[in-house]
């Protein structure tokens, strides 16, 4: 059991997202960095998709009310358990009475903006429509359908236990992706791609895009060259997914993120492949990146690489845990 000490409006309980509810108008939600959430869970022997706390406003602190194994992944926030410094992407035991504190994300080899706090057995909140992710618009799922507040108490699915701390190498280091000195995000063309001018195509792939402060779990508004359709585009409402890159009339793209609504009507120039969405999910506001055109085979290979990385981590973590339990 942990108690939220910070009044951070924006920390939420998330898992890998809600599937199968789109036909009721319910978007997927889920972790902005699904690899970090899954990795934290695997360090603890949880299922990869168990619920965790996604933290995006710092500092953030929780008090531990009962012993529990935990893991911290995502942004390196120079976390401390009482006075003891914790390594990033690390697991350990939280003891009753201790306080876990996360500071602002520090500058590291991988700039990131969201941290994940996983507990053994997952954060114990009820499953709603097949997921424990917070559905903010629908005000259900997660913890009482809302962001966490000071005083909220969250239980671990598997309290107690005893683990020796070990960690994971952040996948950004294992699977780096850059283009011309900036982080790159791979994109497949979407329905209206061909309805933009050649100059817009060149700018879309060639120029750097900046993540503006008007960016959150719903969507990232980007700043860069203006994208212009050959003729005005009017579309009927249709299904959309996290990662879709829409171009409203102003010409500055919006990338729909995890809390995106499940349908929309703006023209779509491309969609970030699912395997790379975590990269953007962690990219800090103000940072710049490039879109990199990819093809279907490469996109599936990227998915396979993510899955293989997680499977490998899971196997090694299991070995480690079993060895420690035997000892």
């Amino acid at each position: 059991m942990i108690e939220i000490l910070s009044d951070t409006a924006l920390a939420t309980v998330q898992d890998l997202g809600r599937t199968g509810a789109l036909n009721w108008g319910v978007g997927t939600s889920g972790a902005m960095d699904p690899l970090a959430l899954a990795a934290g869970n695997l360090l603890l022997g949880n299922a990869a998709g168990d619920a965790a706390i996604e933290i995006q406003v710092f500092p953030f602190a929780v008090r531990v009310h009962a012993d529990c194994a935990f893991a911290l992944t995502g942004a390196d926030c120079a976390a401390r358990m009482d006075e003891q410094t914790l390594l990033p992407w690390w697991s350990g035991m939280a003891r009753a009475g201790q306080t876990l504190r996360l500071g602002l994300p520090v500058a590291t080899a991988w700039p990131a903006s969201r941290a994940y706090l996983c507990l053994a057995g997952g954060i114990d909140v009820p499953e709603m429509l097949g997921s424990r992710s917070t559905q903010l618009r629908g005000a259900f799922g997660g913890y009482a359908g809302r962001a966490l507040r000071q005083g909220d108490l969250l239980r671990a699915g598997r309290p107690g236990g005893d683990v020796n701390g070990f960690g994971a190498v952040p996948p950004a280091l294992a699977m780096p992706l850059q283009q011309d000195g900036l982080p790159a995000i791979r994109v497949l063309r979407a329905a209206e791609y061909d309805r933009y001018t050649p100059a817009s195509h060149a700018a879309f792939w060639g120029e750097a895009w900046r993540i503006t402060p008007q960016s959150d779990r719903y969507g990232y508004r980007l700043a860069g060259p203006s994208l212009t359709p050959i003729a005005p585009i009017e579309l009927r409402s249709h299904g959309i997914v996290p990662g879709v890159i829409q171009v409203p009339h102003g010409g500055q793209p919006i990338v729909q993120m995890r809390d995106a609504q499940p349908s929309g009507g703006y023209p779509k120039i491309g969609t970030i492949i699912e395997a790379d969405l975590w990269r953007l999910g962690q990219a800090p506001i103000g940072s710049r990146f490039r879109f990199l055109e990819t093809d279907w085979a490469t996109a599936l290979a990227a998915r396979d690489a993510n899955e293989a990385w997680l499977a490998g981590l899971g196997r090694l973590a299991n070995l480690q845990r079993l060895g420690a339990a035997a000892a």
Binding site: A190, A191, H238, G239, I240, V241, K268, I273, E274
Partner: peptide, 20 residues
């Protein structure tokens, strides 16, 4: 009809003609 990709997540099918 138009068939297009939404990344590796989904595929979009758009029926031709006016909305009815």
């Amino acid at each position: 009809p138009g068939v297009s990709l939404l990344g590796t997540t989904a595929l979009l099918f758009d029926a031709p003609g006016a909305t009815d």
